[in-house]
Computed example of a mutant assay.
Amino acid sequence: MNTLKAEKRSMDIKAKKLRREGFVTGNVFGKKLAESIPVKIEKSAIEKLLKTSHKGSQIMLDIDGESYQVLIKDVEYNPLKGQVDEIDFQALVSDEKVHSVAEIELVDHEKVVYGVLEQFLEEIQLRALPAALVDKVEINVGELKVGESIKVKDLPIYQNKDIDILTDPEATIVTIQEVHNAPEADEEAEESTEA
């Protein structure tokens, strides 16, 4: 599990000033915390973390030497600057179910040679105890044929009794569509060459 170092943030200093100084601001909230903890984290540490972790991942957060097991709850990007502005964490309690998301990752898509692969869902909403949380669902699409699709209810995670899937079980995640050429254009081209 990744560990991220953070410092308690003084609310006297504006977030914009901290961002200019190379920090990302954030908050830690949770049932067992008396109040949320405003934090600041070095931007380079966040960039390194987000290469291996993402929204829905569990990490250890070290705030001024005190460790918290947390879930990355939300990551707010600044699209103009191409960087993270804000990141929020939920402090986990072993006996409390939490809402989270699992990122969908398609594998073996290069094996799909007939048809067009279409992905409709990027993530699955779920609820589980910290010990049962997953942050990624891999789907092997290499064996799919034209016209076939995978729905949420087809995933092994859907059968896991420790995880409550909140996304519609009938929702299609991925499908293989038939490739459609434009026959009218071909016919017109043939007619014009004959004339």
Rank of each mutant, 00 (worst) to 15 (best):
I59E: 15
S192K: 14
E35W: 03
D168F: 07
E184T: 13
D62I: 04
E148D: 07
R19N: 13
I124R: 03
V70K: 03
Q119E: 14
K51G: 07
I139C: 13
Q177G: 09
L129R: 15
T172E: 15
L61A: 06
K40M: 08
L126S: 09
L126P: 14
D186P: 00
I37F: 02
V93R: 01
E187C: 00
A185P: 02
S57E: 04
T3A: 09
L166P: 05
E35H: 08
A128H: 05
E194S: 14
P156M: 12
E105W: 01
V134H: 07
K8Y: 00
F89P: 03
V174C: 10
Q58W: 08
F120G: 15
G30F: 02
D74F: 03
I163Y: 14
L49C: 04
P169W: 09
T172S: 07
G26S: 01
T175N: 10
I37A: 04
K55C: 02
H180S: 09
V24S: 13
K73G: 00
I163D: 07
E21V: 06
D168I: 12
I173C: 04
A15R: 10
I157V: 15
S67G: 07
V75H: 08
S94P: 15
I46V: 14
E191P: 02
K17G: 04
K40R: 10
L49F: 04
A171T: 07
I165C: 14
R127G: 00
N140K: 04
S53K: 14
K32I: 00
K51Q: 12
S100F: 02
K136Y: 03
K73R: 08
G82Y: 13
K8I: 01
P156S: 14
K40D: 00
L50A: 12
I13H: 10
A45I: 01
E86S: 14
A34S: 11
D88A: 15
I157N: 12
V75W: 06
E187I: 10
N140V: 00
D164K: 14
I124F: 01
Q83V: 08
V24R: 10
T25G: 11
I165Q: 13
K153T: 03
L106I: 04
P38I: 00
V70W: 00
I72V: 11
E188A: 13
K14V: 06
I59L: 11
V134G: 11
E103V: 12
D164F: 13
